Simulated assay, not measured.
Amino acid sequence: MRRTSRYPVKEANSLWHIYKTVPFWKVVKNFIVIQLARYTPFLPMKNWMYRHFLGMKVGEHTAFALMVMLDIMFPEKIQVGRNSVIGYNTTILAHEYLIKEYRLGDVIIGNGVMIGANTTILPGVIIGDGAIVSAGTLVYRDVPAGAFVGGNPMKVIYTKEEMVKRDKEEILTTNN
């Protein structure tokens, strides 16, 4: 289960109440910063913009590819560890506006994580250190450290333990 806080709304859908949940000028500033960063080819500058203007925690040597779309409303709820790669056109959300409620949740991406292109990460998800998320995946729940996941819906393709076992078997086979 994802870690989100739920906020019920009355009458109109929750998106209709958007500026009761997040200040208009914050959204404008975030939109401008995110759009500039989406197109900049300078990775250190992109990370600096995310840290200083959006309040995100971004680890050293982390690379956000071209066109990554961060949550415009609550980017400060996104944390990415060091030496991770966020693939082309990936979307990372920290909010969900639904009909009768909206939800907020931190997104935590560990160290040495590889996120494939065109992936969508939903709020309240933790992606463990060393995990690999294949391209086009909908990450709707936690990803264990070292796991390889993919698909829509997301499935664990193999875990770190299975990979270590395969590697040992391969070494034994090639040595014999």
Rank of each mutant, 00 (worst) to 15 (best):
M73S: 13
I34M: 06
F74G: 01
L104C: 01
A37N: 00
Y102L: 04
I86F: 03
M67E: 14
R51G: 13
G55H: 11
G55D: 03
K46I: 08
N47S: 14
P123M: 07
R82A: 15
N111H: 12
V85R: 02
A37D: 00
Q79L: 03
L98R: 14
K46A: 01
V107N: 10
G105R: 08
I86Q: 01
A135G: 15
A65R: 11
V133F: 06
R82L: 01
N111F: 08
P123S: 10
T62D: 04
D71S: 11
Y140G: 09
F42Y: 14
H95G: 10
M49I: 13
P44A: 14
M69P: 03
Y39V: 05
T62Y: 00
N118W: 08
H61A: 06
T62L: 11
A65H: 10
P75Y: 10
I34T: 05
Y102G: 03
A94H: 03
S84I: 06
N83G: 05
M56T: 12
F42N: 15
P41W: 13
M114R: 15
V85W: 13
K100P: 06
R141S: 11
R51K: 15
N89K: 13
G110M: 03
E76Q: 12
L54N: 03
M114A: 15
A63L: 11
I127D: 01
L98I: 12
Y88M: 14
E101I: 02
Y50W: 15
I99E: 13
A94R: 04
P75H: 08
W48E: 05
V33T: 15
P123A: 07
G124V: 08
H95A: 06
N111P: 04
V125P: 05
G116D: 02
L66D: 10
Y50C: 02
M67A: 13
G128S: 11
I132V: 15
L70S: 09
L122S: 04
V85T: 12
Y50P: 02
D129V: 11
Y102V: 07
A63K: 07
N83E: 12
L54F: 03
E60S: 09
Y88W: 15
M67I: 05
K100I: 00
D71F: 02
M69H: 11
G112P: 04
K57G: 06
G130N: 09
L138I: 12
S84R: 08
Y97E: 02
L93V: 05
A117L: 00
I115W: 08
Y50K: 09
Q35A: 06
W48I: 10
V58R: 06
I34P: 01
V68F: 00
